[in-house]
């Protein structure tokens, strides 16, 4: 799950970037409205963590632009002011959730998972497919009741595919979900991770659609 963090305070931004990465998210972080606009134009994110007070404008403006351009990426607002009026204004502008500072890192992660779950139209937290069960909160995967150990990247790929069953993801789209901007993408990395996933979960789970990409296949 790729998340954009928009927060101007260096220490908090760094904390969120590292902390959410530890919770299994792929994170990108920016500190200004301009940088956020650039990031949103170039990439697609599964969720946005947005601070309201930014040096070159208000997070509210980013939100308005986003919603007026028909982009319905879930947005979690972070703000120092959390009176009812502020929360109502934020939610009415198109935010999906709201957290007052200081917040709990685990709560941010849980809310982001919930937002992403709702945006893909699911009610339950865990993802299931052909005997496979993925729990985003604990970043754990079980096959037929037995836990399966996956690396962070393998888990991310599986999470992306299981969150959208039937959807074909191209290699670059998967890379997008795996790496933030600062991270260097190794060539053939996606192929290698898929290969490992097939070894661990069975060869039929992930289908290759020749020339287009990958999607979930029949039972492994």
């Amino acid at each position: 799950m790729r998340v954009l963090i928009v927060e101007d305070d260096d220490i908090l931004r760094d904390g969120l970037k590292v902390g959410l990465a530890l919770a299994g998210f792929t994170t990108d972080a920016v500190g200004t409205c301009d940088a956020a606009a650039t990031a949103l134009a170039a990439n697609s994110f599964d969720a946005i963590v947005l601070d309201l007070m930014l040096p070159d404008g208000s997070g509210m403006d980013i939100l308005k632009d986003l919603r007026s351009s028909q982009n319905d990426t879930p947005v979690l607002l972070l703000t120092a002011r959390d009176t009812v009026r502020d929360r109502v204004a934020g939610l009415d502008t198109g935010a999906d959730d709201y957290l007052g500072k200081p917040f709990d890192l685990d709560e941010v992660a849980a809310r982001l998972r919930a937002l992403s779950r709702r945006s893909t139209g699911r009610a339950t937290a865990a993802l299931e497919w052909a005997g496979l069960r993925l729990d985003p909160a604990r970043q754990s995967v079980e096959q037929a009741g037995k836990p399966v150990q996956l690396s962070r990247r393998e888990y991310s790929i599986l999470h992306t595919l299981m969150a959208h069953p039937g959807v074909i993801f191209s290699k670059t789209k998967l890379e997008d979900r795996l790496y933030g901007w600062q991270e260097e993408i190794e060539s053939n990395a996606v192929e290698v991770h898929i290969h490992h996933l097939r070894n661990k979960l069975g060869p039929g789970l992930i289908e290759t659609v020749r020339g287009i990409g990958y999607r979930l296949g029949g039972a492994g």
């Binding site: 305070d9 260096d10 220490i11 908090l12 760094d14 904390g15 969120l16 590292v18 902390g19 530890l22 919770a23 601070d51 309201l52 007070m53 972070l78 703000t79 120092a80 002011r81 007052g100 500072k101 200081p102 917040f103 709990d104 890192l105 685990d106």
Partner: peptide, 23 residues
């Protein structure tokens, strides 16, 4: 609004970094 932002953001940063260190 400014005061709340300037007073609460550093606290949020401290807490988040502490939770990162713990996790």
């Amino acid at each position: 609004a400014f005061a709340a932002h300037e007073l609460r953001t550093p606290l949020a940063g401290l807490k988040t970094q502490a939770q990162v260190a713990l996790a």
